[in-house]
Design a protein around this nucleic acid. Structure first.
Length: 276
DNA sequence: TTCCAGGCTATGT
DNA sequence: ACATAGCATGGA
């Protein structure tokens, strides 16, 4: 990835593996706002960036370029990853369709909360609920920082319901209490096995949400979250249906250490064509 | 009206 | 270990 960092912006010169709508609308993140075609506001933790396409370049305007170089994973070689996971014609089409996808290096707490909200929900409502949760965070100039764990502790079950969380309100409330008992940054040192076991102990976190947290919150790329869309993809590829656990392990085995990337291309591709 | 959305918990076999 | 009912809510 060819890019240059300046004081208040990042310029992406090579857009072969960078497309902001692919990146933000592939279902991995719920904290952004689309202003217009190729013009998005992105919120992460207490940081903010505006991303615009100008000519053949993307410009990421931000007070903290260093943060967003990491956030957009600019130093990872996606051409090599695409080559590694291109195991059949089906995924080759998906990679071609979502060629600008990158897996964001998101804040862990935001990912945990976001994907608990995501269960049996739709993306537009997940995004709305996350936006309202964000309003409990510290007020910045023109946006809110994501609430700290301490602030999240002040939100009641009824508050979460009022934000449209539905029956997931109790999951959020309870999991926030469970998070008080661990040193969250320290869990990043745990091996994937131990992490998954712990994640599954959180109220409202099952196998699929745990895989999403591992992939998007911890960068464990040998995970394959299976939801309703990936179920359809599995049937397309393997011509048979299995339990979600079996499908997930089959897909990790099939795609290998970069399976998580494959998951994103396939999800984006299948969802885009089936929803309308 | 019924079905579905980035499924999970609780309960039964 | 696996199968299934019930679950909040809004949009198609």
């Amino acid at each position: 990835m060819i890019y240059s960092v300046q004081q208040d912006k990042i310029i992406i010169k090579d857009t072969k593996d960078f497309n902001i709508s692919h990146i933000l609308e592939c279902g991995q993140v719920f904290t952004y706002k689309k202003n217009a075609e190729n013009d998005y506001d992105v919120y992460s933790l207490d940081e903010f960036a505006n991303v615009k396409k100008i000519g053949d370049e993307y410009i990421i305007y931000t007070k903290n370029p260093k943060y967003f170089v990491n956030y957009f994973d600019l130093d990872t070689d996606y051409s090599a990853i695409k080559k590694d996971i291109a195991k059949n014609d089906y995924i080759k089409k998906a990679i071609n369709y979502g060629s600008g996808i990158r897996i964001l290096r998101q804040n862990l707490l935001e990912v945990i909360i976001g994907f608990i909200v995501s269960a049996n929900n739709n993306i537009s409502r997940i995004t709305k609920t996350m936006q309202k949760i964000r309003e409990y965070g510290e007020k910045k100039d023109n946006y809110y920082a994501f609430p700290t764990l301490s602030r999240l502790n002040d939100i009641t079950i009824q508050d979460f319901k009022d934000m449209g969380a539905g029956y997931r309100a109790e999951y959020l409330y309870q999991t926030i209490r469970q998070l008080n008992d661990v040193d969250l940054p320290k869990t990043k040192q745990w091996d994937t096995q131990k992490l998954k076991k712990w994640l599954l102990s959180l109220y409202g976190v099952g196998p699929k949400v745990a895989d999403c947290i591992l992939l998007f919150g911890y960068g464990r790329c040998d995970c394959f979250p299976v939801d309703t869309w990936i179920e359809k993809v599995y049937i397309d590829i393997f011509k048979t249906k299995q339990s979600r656990l079996k499908m997930s392990s089959d897909l990790v085995q099939y795609f290998g250490k970069n399976a998580g990337y494959a998951q994103q291309y396939l999800f984006f591709y299948k969802r885009s064509f089936d929803k309308k």
